[in-house]
């Protein structure tokens, strides 16, 4: 088990990992064989390019594989990659993301999703009103703004990539679509790992959607039956811009969860359902309500608690 006494630790408390020095690089048959964590930074020479292949975060110069980002060195057989510790979101097909509409174009929406370029949501990749499966009509094209408008938040899945690396999204599922009744919190994308389910319901009447792009939607709990509507798909509900009535206790719970997430993110704690649940349980026992969490000492105590329990 790890034991964290205080957090964040003073800088000299970090014993830096044993970094192999450049002299050892000639003997790269056993490069990274010992299983220790190796860190790299731009310009750090990793190994010879004869014996190994360069992956992401590296480049080859003068027959050497050299890191181009600061992060952890990873090796899969002969492939050397450096995974940056902090970066923008790198999309993969099947990822659940949360985005914001920035532009309405012909038969498509542009969605800002914390990636290197805006994502595209095609009109053909959304569920249209009046039945889940039907051909899109010209009238649908004309009233695209009734579905999604500039500034709307939505949850979607990465469907495919275009030739230039832009991601294409789809919302062809009842759990995807426009977001309402809640609040958005952004965290660094690498804090959110791929989980079994990115839809989390906390017992305090709060639903969470953890987007892999680092956007988190915290909203009032919606009952499973309500979400589906009468005939399985309720266009009014899905594309509605109106929030439901949210009572005070739910509002407090939402802010509480939002503050927990920003505290954990500022300490670079990876988020998942158990961590959030434990953090919430701990925080409701504290006095002062949601705003107390943002004080440094309370925040540190929260992180220590979460660390000791996980």
């Amino acid at each position: 088990m790890i034991s964290f006494t205080s957090f964040p630790q003073p800088q000299d408390a970090y014993k830096r990992p044993e970094i192999e020095e450049d002299e050892d690089m000639e003997v790269d048959e056993d490069f990274m064989e010992n299983g220790t964590l190796k860190l790299a930074w731009p310009g750090e020479s990793l190994t010879s390019s004869h014996a190994y292949m360069r992956g992401h975060g590296t480049y080859v110069d003068n027959e050497e594989v050299i890191a181009s980002v600061a992060g952890i060195v990873e090796r899969v057989n002969k492939l050397i990659t450096v995974r940056p510790v902090r970066t923008r979101y790198n999309p993969e097909v099947g990822d659940l993301v949360i985005g914001r509409i920035t532009e309405v174009q012909a038969r498509r929406w542009k969605v800002e999703a914390n990636s290197r370029q805006d994502a595209v949501l095609m009109l053909s990749s959304v569920n249209l009103p009046g039945g889940v499966q039907r051909r899109k009509l010209e009238s649908d094209e004309l009233q695209m703004r009734t579905f999604f408008e500039e500034g709307d938040l939505l949850v979607a899945e990465v469907q495919a990539f275009f030739g230039d690396g832009t991601m294409s999204l789809h919302t062809r599922s009842l759990s995807y679509g426009k977001l309402r009744n809640g609040q958005l919190v952004t965290v660094p994308p690498n804090l959110i790992r791929r989980l079994k389910s990115h839809f989390i319901s906390l017992p305090c009447g709060v639903d969470l959607i953890l987007g892999l792009n680092g956007y988190i939607w915290i909203s009032k709990h919606v009952k499973e039956s309500d979400r589906e509507g009468e005939e399985g798909f309720d266009a009014e509900g899905v594309y509605s811009n109106k929030n439901d009535a949210i009572d005070d206790s739910t509002r407090t719970a939402i802010s509480q969860v939002a503050n927990i997430i920003s505290v954990l993110a500022s300490h670079a704690v990876p988020l998942n359902d158990t961590v959030l649940l434990e953090a919430y349980e701990w925080s409701v026992e504290q006095e002062g309500g949601p705003k107390a969490l943002l004080q440094d000492d309370v925040g540190d105590a929260l992180v220590v608690t979460v660390a000791s329990r996980s």
């Binding site: 800088q11 299983g35 992060g71 510790v85 300490h267 670079a268 990876p270 961590v275 996980s310």
Partner: peptide
Amino acid sequence: VKEKTAKLVDAMQLGKGSAAPNA
């Protein structure tokens, strides 16, 4: 840079629990 990277990597190990004891 090394210090900052080590600090972030260290914090990231937290969620993994005992899954990565070597790290």
